[in-house]
C-alpha cells in the first residue's frame, strides 16, 4: 500500500518534476558551456566551478521553487479537490499516509538539486574540462544547500496543510523554514561549522515533521 501511495504521489508530481528537470539540464549545460540552443544563464569561460559568481547557484533557485511548489501541491491540491476525505479514509494510520507523502515529496525535491550538482561536479572534476583547479572541498557549500533543501519543502507542506488565511499567517511556516535554512547555511559559510549546520538543519526538519504529523492528526478536513 505504501507503494501505491508513493506511485500516486509521484504521478501527481510528475509535471512539476519534469519541468524542473528540463530547466536544471539547461542551467547545468549552460554552466558547462554546452550549447543547447537555449541559454538561461551566461557563464564566463574563465570562471572556476563552484567558486565566486558561478551560475550553478541557479540550480538551487529552481530547486527551492520546486520544493515549495511540491509542498503546496501535495496539500492544497488535495484540499481544493476535496480528496482528503477519500485519501484519509483508506485503512492506514494517518501518520503512515502523511509519512509517505513527505518521503516522496522530500526525496523528489532533493533529487532535483542533487543530480544536477553531482553532474556539474563530476564535469568540473574531469581533467581538461576547464582551465582551473578543482578540489571536492570546493563543493561543500553546494552539498550543504542540497541537504537543507527539504526545509523549504517541509515549510511549504506545513503552509499548505495548516488552517490559516491567505492574507494572514498562511506562509509563516515557509518563511520560518527559509530563515532557518539561511541561518544554517550562514553557520557553515561564516564559521565553517559544516557539521553543526547539518545537525541544526536536521533538528529543524525533525521539528517540522513532528508539527506536520500533529496538524494532520488534529485539523479538520471538512
Amino acid at each position: 500500500m505504501m507503494r501505491a501511495l508513493a506511485r500516486k504521489e509521484l504521478r501527481e508530481l510528475l509535471p512539476l518534476l519534469a519541468l524542473a528537470a528540463i530547466v536544471q539540464v539547461i542551467i547545468v549545460c549552460s554552466s558547462m558551456h554546452v550549447n543547447l540552443g537555449i541559454r538561461l544563464v551566461t557563464q564566463s569561460a574563465d570562471l572556476i566551478p563552484f567558486v565566486g559568481q558561478d551560475a550553478i547557484w541557479q540550480v538551487f533557485l529552481v530547486g527551492g521553487l520546486l520544493a515549495g511548489s511540491v509542498g503546496l501541491r501535495q496539500t492544497m491540491w488535495e484540499s481544493n479537490r476535496h480528496t482528503w476525505q477519500f485519501l484519509l479514509h483508506r485503512p492506514l494510520p494517518r501518520e503512515a499516509l502523511f509519512g509517505a507523502k513527505l518521503a516522496v515529496g522530500a526525496a523528489a525535491s532533493t533529487l532535483v538539486v542533487v543530480v544536477p550538482i553531482l553532474w556539474y561536479a563530476l564535469w568540473a572534476a574531469s581533467p581538461g574540462a576547464h582551465a582551473s583547479p578543482f578540489f571536492w572541498s570546493m563543493t561543500i557549500w553546494a552539498w550543504l544547500l542540497c541537504a537543507l533543501m527539504p526545509l523549504v519543502y517541509l515549510g511549504a507542506f506545513l503552509s499548505g496543510l495548516r488552517s490559516a488565511r491567505w492574507y494572514g499567517s498562511r506562509f509563516l511556516p515557509l518563511a520560518a523554514a527559509l530563515l532557518a535554512m539561511f541561518l544554517c547555511y550562514g553557520l557553515s559559510a561564516a564559521l565553517s561549522w559544516h557539521v553543526a549546520a547539518l545537525v541544526a538543519g536536521g533538528v529543524v526538519a525533525a521539528g517540522y515533521v513532528a508539527v506536520i504529523l500533529f496538524v494532520a492528526r488534529t485539523r479538520d478536513f471538512s
Binding site: E12, T83, H89, R90, P91, P93
Partner: peptide, 18 residues
Amino acid sequence: PATRARIAYLSEGHPLYR
C-alpha cells in the same frame, strides 16, 4: 485500520482523483 477497512465512506460530491 482493520476496523476502518470494514467501513465505507462516500463523502459529498464523491471526490476521487480525476
